[in-house]
Design a protein around this nucleic acid. Structure first.
Lengths: 155, 155
DNA sequence: AACAATTAAATTGCAAACAATAAAGTATGA
DNA sequence: TCATACTTTATTGTTTGCAATTTAATTGTT
C-alpha cells in the first residue's frame, strides 16, 4: 500500500466515502421532505422503530452519536411530535426516548415512501450486500486503529 | 431490490456510508493533529497541492462544497498561514486561492505523516481500488437521481 | 453514613454543511 | 447606453458533530 507518489484526491478512499455520504444525505433529505425529517433524524427514528423505548445512551451507541449531538436533535423530534422524552423512574440520570402514536402510525408510510425513492437507485441485492460488508470491514479497521492509538496514549 | 420487510439500520447502505465517513473523519482528525488541520481543511489543501491557484468556485466543484462552507473554511486556512485569498484582477467577482510558501514546504511532510497513518489501516491495493470504483458507481447513481428530480421539478 | 469514583445527560464552544438570500461584478440584448 | 439576466462570493440562519466541561444521580468503599 505504501507508495512515494501521493494519491490524487479522487483516488482517496476517505474522499470517496466523504463524498458518497454527503450525496446520500442530499438524497434522503429530498426523499424525507414530505415528513420534515432530516437524515440524522430519520436514522434516529429507524433505530426507535426497531427498538423502543431506548435511553439516550443506547441510542448513542446505536448511531455512534454522543449526547451533545443527540440532546438537541431529540428535542427537535419531540417538538415535531415524533418522540417523547421522559426521565427514567428507576434511574433519574437516564432519559427514555419513546415513539408517539403519530410515529407508530407513520412508520410504514415513511418506510414505503423512502424505499420507493431508494428503488430509483437501481442497486441489485447481491452487489448491495457485498458492498455493505466491504464497507463494514473498512469501518472495523478504522475502529481498530482508533483503539490502537488509545493504547499508545495510555502508555 | 424492492422488499416489503424493512431493512434494519445496520443493513442500510446509507448508514454504512454515514458511519464509515465519520470514522474516517476521526481517523484523519487524529492523524492531522500535528498540523492543526481538520479533515475538510486537509482535502482542501490536497486539492490545492494538486492544482493551484484555484478560484473558490473551482475548489467548490472539486470538493462538492458551496461558498457558504468554503468561505469561512478558507478564512481559517488563511489565518493559519496555509493559503492566501486574492480578488482576481480580470474578474473582480472571483477570489483566487493560492498556497503560501509554508504550505508548499509542508506538503511532503504532511503527506508522509498521513500516509504513514493510513498504512496502519492495512488495506491491500487491489481491493482498495475495487472498493473505490464501487463507491464511485453508487455516488454516480445518486447524482443521476438528483438530476432526475431536478428535471421532474422543472416540468 | 460519608466520601470518592463513576455514569448519564445536558451545556458550551467551535467547525462543517447547506439552503436561501444578498451584494457586487460581468455579460447580454434591445 | 441602459436595463436585465447571470455569475461569483459572502452572509445569515439552521442543523449536525464532537470535544470538553458541568450537573445530577448512582454506585462503591471505607
Amino acid at each position: 500500500m505504501s507508495d512515494t507518489t501521493p494519491r490524487l484526491l479522487d483516488d482517496q478512499l476517505c474522499f470517496a466515502f466523504y463524498t458518497a455520504s454527503k450525496k446520500f444525505n442530499h438524497f434522503y433529505q429530498e426523499a424525507l421532505k414530505p415528513f420534515h425529517l432530516t437524515y440524522p433524524q430519520y436514522i434516529t427514528m429507524l433505530a426507535l422503530w426497531e427498538t423502543s423505548p431506548l435511553t439516550v445512551r443506547e441510542l448513542g451507541q446505536r448511531l455512534n452519536l454522543d449526547s451533545g449531538t443527540l440532546t438537541p436533535l431529540l428535542k427537535r423530534l419531540e417538538k415535531q411530535g415524533w418522540i417523547s422524552r421522559d426521565r427514567s423512574q428507576k434511574d433519574e440520570r437516564q432519559v427514555n426516548i419513546s415513539l408517539t402514536q403519530h410515529a407508530v402510525e407513520q412508520r410504514d408510510v415513511v418506510y414505503d415512501h423512502v424505499n420507493q425513492c431508494v428503488d430509483i437507485l437501481d442497486l441489485d441485492l447481491a452487489s448491495y450486500d457485498d458492498l455493505l460488508s466491504q464497507i463494514h470491514d473498512v469501518a472495523d479497521n478504522l475502529d481498530d486503529v482508533r483503539s490502537d492509538w488509545k493504547i499508545q496514549k495510555a502508555f
